[in-house]
């Protein structure tokens, strides 16, 4: 059992790391904001709201949390989630089961921060159900130590019911990655929409494997899956974007942009499009290679060096 004093200290440490990662820690003390704070395998902060139920439980090496956004609930402020690991070594498993019921609308702002981790694995699974005409936005930003030895495994399985909307943004651009295995898959029913976006910056010996999949099951379902990878130095990146058009008039678009800079980079992208209904429409676009020469020259003609121009272009790409 963790003592109150330890918990306070841990909260302070996590708060500092969270703010360094770009999060607004004041939200965790604001009772008007729903929040969940996890450190290692402990829940050290929890706040629910009307229409929001968060039920966390400790599991081996981690935390499992069920989050329910009740029918017709429209949250005007995002739910803040902080997942931290303050040790140097270990494993953290996080399982989120998120249910957004019919007509509900919710935004999650999640920060995962592992500022001092060295030999560490973070294994996250999100099982998401977006109900009929409900809307869910999940922004997931990671902040790692710069050791490059973190292994991050993140899996999302989402189902979006008729007329529902699911937007999922994953960002890991401010620090080293280490190893990343990202696997996101969404099932879209009639008129449902999804927007999956991943932005990562890999450097030194970082390794990235990304798979995003759109299953357009329902008629008029539509989705877009975008991946942006900046691969520097000797980093490796493998991207697979998939879209399956099953429903009539379903539309899917997949896009992969990989910008390379460094003699030892090793990157690839594979688009997979499969139409199983003659009325479905799938498209893809991909670019892979150095920063666009015309963009570089344009900025250099304004006085930037090649290095500065590259940095600005990359800044735009990864936000």
């Amino acid at each position: 059992m963790i003592s109150i004093v330890d918990q306070k200290k841990e909260f302070e440490l996590l708060k500092k790391a969270y703010e360094k990662a770009g999060g607004d820690a004041s939200k965790f003390l604001d009772k008007r904001v729903a929040s969940l704070i996890i450190s290692g395998n402990k829940v050290i902060g929890l706040n629910g709201l009307n229409g929001v139920e968060i039920q966390p439980e400790q599991i081996q090496d981690g935390v499992k949390a069920k989050m329910l956004i009740k029918k017709d609930t429209v949250l005007t402020t995002p739910i803040h989630i902080c997942t931290g690991f303050l040790e140097k070594h270990g494993l953290q498993r996080v399982i989120f089961e998120i249910e957004v019921q019919e007509n509900a609308q919710v935004k999650f702002v999640a920060h995962c921060t592992f500022p001092w981790a060295e030999q560490f694995t973070h294994d996250a699974l999100a099982i998401v159900h977006v109900g009929k005409n409900a809307k869910m936005y999940y922004a997931d930003e990671h902040y790692h130590s710069n050791t490059g030895s973190i292994h991050l495994k993140t899996t999302t399985r989402a189902t979006v019911e008729e007329g529902g909307v699911f937007i999922n943004n994953f960002t890991l651009t401010k620090t080293r990655i280490g190893k990343l295995h990202l696997d996101a898959s969404v099932e879209l029913h009639t008129n449902a929409k999804a927007d999956l976006s991943v932005k990562v910056k890999a450097s030194k010996t970082d390794e990235v494997a990304i798979r995003e999949k759109l299953n357009l099951f329902g008629d008029y379902a539509s989705g877009i899956a975008k991946t942006t990878v900046i691969a520097l130095d000797q980093s490796k990146a493998r991207v697979v974007n998939e879209a399956y058009g099953v429903g009539a008039y379903s539309k899917g678009h997949i896009k992969c942009e990989e910008v390379t800079k460094g003699e030892g980079v090793d990157v690839s992208t594979i688009p997979v499009l499969k139409v199983l209904n003659e009325l479905a429409e799938l498209t893809h676009e991909a670019s892979i290679g150095r920063v666009n020469a015309n963009q570089l020259q344009t900025l250099m003609a304004k006085g930037l060096t090649e290095e500065e121009a590259t940095e600005l272009i990359i800044k735009g790409l990864i936000g």
Partner: peptide, 12 residues
Amino acid sequence: QGLSVEQYLTLG
């Protein structure tokens, strides 16, 4: 992509 007019004009 991703650069606002302000960022572009001021070169970041």
